[in-house]
Design a protein around this nucleic acid. Structure first.
Lengths: 96, 96
DNA sequence: TAATTTGGTTTATAAAATAAACTGATTTAT
DNA sequence: ATAAATCAGTTTATTTTATAAACCAAATTA
């Protein structure tokens, strides 16, 4: 009846991050922060979780002299996101 | 960009309960328990939260000699559910 | 009449989300 | 030159949440 929801994606901020990365395929920390409205601390923690799950790849480089964290969705992450969206439908489609 | 998600509905079990009640408009505790696969304890707690939020109405009656807890979605609950589904779309629709 | 089942509630614990505080380097202002 | 402010994050602490375990009362079955 109801498909289980991946707890890693069933989180407002992590879902927003993944949603963002699905469409842009590359985003810097401050951009994600701005788009999601998250605090830096919260974002940092959630990016770690997504990264540890292999849903995103995090590259730490420099932009001029300043540190720069770039995030990209991975194939596993894309698959998980699609699976989550699919599972959600079992909760949203009225009367089947 | 991303619409906030009602934390009361952004919960696997509570969402399942609401989804169920949207389509049936009346369900007994054991039925909800069976359909969602939840433990009785967890379900009891989550029904309380939905009830306290005014999203569902809980009627405690008897079915013969046995206690019977009947749940119905309220207009406020239906509105909240629809709002939640709508907000979710801002996370799921690829490239706005 | 003892054990089991039904229909739950209450309580305890583990996990999660989130913000606050902090670090270290870079600009900018004085 | 140096003090203050900003940038780019991380770490830690706190609150909230989800969940299961333990419990309770009544009814049913053995």
């Amino acid at each position: 009846m109801f498909q289980p929801l991946d707890p890693l994606l069933h989180s407002e901020l992590r879902l927003a991050v993944m949603s963002l990365l699905v469409s842009v395929e590359e985003a810097e920390f401050p951009y994600i922060k701005e788009q999601t409205g998250a605090t830096a601390g919260n974002l940092s923690v959630q990016l770690d979780k997504l990264s540890e799950a292999g849903y995103i790849a995090v590259e730490k480089t420099y932009k001029g002299k300043r540190p720069c964290t770039i995030c990209r969705i991975t194939p596993a992450g894309l698959k998980a996101f699609e699976g989550y969206v699919d599972a959600l439908k079992s909760y949203l489609e009225i009367s089947n």
